[in-house]
C-alpha cells in the first residue's frame, strides 16, 4: 500500500473525554473497520463509584477487544485500553503501560493530561491525540504536549458536543490540527490504521 509522504506513521491513538463522551466513544468504536493495526488508549472521566461495567459498555465492535489494563500490561495492536477507574494510566514506553494512584489532576483520576503527556513522550510524532466532548479543562494541556512532541492532534467539533468546554480549551491553546465531527474522526482513525504498514515494530 502506498502512503503519501505527508501522511504520518501513527503507532498509537489516545482518546480523552468527559461529560457526554461515552455514547460518542461507542459510536467511534463501532465504526472502526476490521483489522485495526494499532492500539487505542481511552481515558474517560467517570464517577469513582461506577468502577465496573465500562468494558461491557464499550464492547460494541466484535473485531476489537476492549480491556481495562492491569499494571505493566503490554500494548498490543487491535486492542482498546480503557483507563481503570481511580487510577491514572501512564504510557511507560512503546510496549508497556503503567498505573498510578497519584493525586487527582484537574479533579480527575484518571487524568487525560497524564495519559496524553506520557504517551507523547513515548511515541512522539507517531502519536495521534483526540479530545471529545467534556466539561473539564483536563486534556487540553495533554493535547498540547502531543503537539509539542510532534504528534497529530484532533478535537471533536465543539458545535456538536454536549459539553464543548474540553475541546474549546484545547483550541484556545492553539495546539489543535483538526476540528472534526465524529463521523470524520472515525474516518481518520480508519485511514490511520489502514495506511499503516503491516507487521511493524510492536
Amino acid at each position: 500500500m502506498n502512503r503519501r509522504k505527508s501522511e504520518r506513521n501513527i503507532s498509537l491513538v489516545v482518546i480523552g473525554g468527559s461529560a457526554g463522551s461515552i455514547p460518542v466513544l461507542r459510536k467511534i468504536l463501532s465504526g472502526i473497520k476490521p483489522g485495526l493495526r494499532i492500539p487505542i488508549i481511552v481515558c474517560l472521566h467517570r464517577m469513582k463509584s461506577v468502577s465496573e461495567g465500562i468494558q461491557e459498555v464499550l464492547s460494541v465492535n466484535a473485531h476489537i477487544k476492549v480491556m481495562e489494563p492491569e499494571d505493566k500490561e503490554e500494548l498490543l495492536e487491535g486492542r482498546i485500553y480503557v483507563a481503570p477507574s481511580n487510577y491514572h494510566l501512564l504510557i511507560e514506553n512503546r510496549r508497556t503501560l503503567s498505573l498510578s494512584t497519584e493525586e487527582m489532576v484537574n479533579y480527575s483520576r484518571p487524568s487525560i493530561d497524564i495519559t496524553f503527556s506520557t504517551a507523547s513522550i513515548a511515541f512522539r510524532q507517531e502519536l495521534m491525540g483526540i479530545l471529545l466532548t467534556g466539561a473539564n479543562k483536563d486534556g487540553a494541556a495533554g493535547l498540547e504536549m502531543v503537539k509539542l512532541n510532534g504528534g497529530l492532534t484532533a478535537v471533536q467539533d465543539p458545535d456538536e458536543c454536549i459539553a464543548p468546554y474540553m475541546p474549546r480549551a484545547a483550541i484556545e491553546r492553539k495546539c489543535v490540527d483538526l476540528v472534526l465531527p465524529v463521523d470524520d474522526i472515525i474516518k481518520l482513525i480508519n485511514r490511520t490504521s489502514l495506511t499503516r504498514p503491516p507487521a511493524t515494530c510492536f
Partner: peptide
C-alpha cells in the same frame, strides 16, 4: 522505578 511516573514526579 517505573520511569513514566518517576520522571513526571
Amino acid at each position: 522505578y517505573a520511569s513514566a511516573s518517576l520522571n513526571r514526579r
